[in-house]
Amino acid sequence: MLEQNLFAGFGGQGMLLIGQFLAQAGMMEGKYVSWLPSYGPEMRGGTANCSVCVSDSPIASPVITKASCVIAMNRPSLDKFESFVRPGDTLIVNSSLVDVKAKRDDINVYYVPANEIAEKIGNMKVANVIILGAFLELTKCVSVDTVLEAIALKLGKKKANLVDINKQALVAGAEAVTAK
């Protein structure tokens, strides 16, 4: 198994962070992982993305040009990375912010209104974790429980009270792609 994932969005939408959650969880499950961010001025309000590889064997290249799953949190990310998805693989689009449909018909496309779901849950900040929940449900890349452990580790003791809302977000994201 070699999962090559690309999570992309505006700087501030938390794509780099959910990439870290995935990498951390993959490592905790004993897999080989790499997390490679885009970096520089684009962190400040431009587009930000990260490539996360999860594999059963050592990862040759951490640089991704073909993806098993792309998350597009905004329109520029969809435009830029739709072509990266390998035929038959997965594209997840945040339909709250992207008002067009994907162009390709040789891939599986899922539309998740992450911001609207986040609003319902009561915390706009977890839109990224909702989309991660959808990703985990679709790819089974790592288990939801391990991701929760990874999130708890990142939040630390001071922010431990936020674990619950993140759990809700993961569940809601998964439901958004199983409901259809």
């Binding site: 990498a23 490592m27 997390w35 490679l36 961010p37 970096y39």
Partner: peptide, 10 residues
């Protein structure tokens, strides 16, 4: 290089 510097690995 920038990738080694910016990348996270176990």
């Amino acid at each position: 290089d920038g990738i080694i510097g910016q990348m996270m690995e176990p």
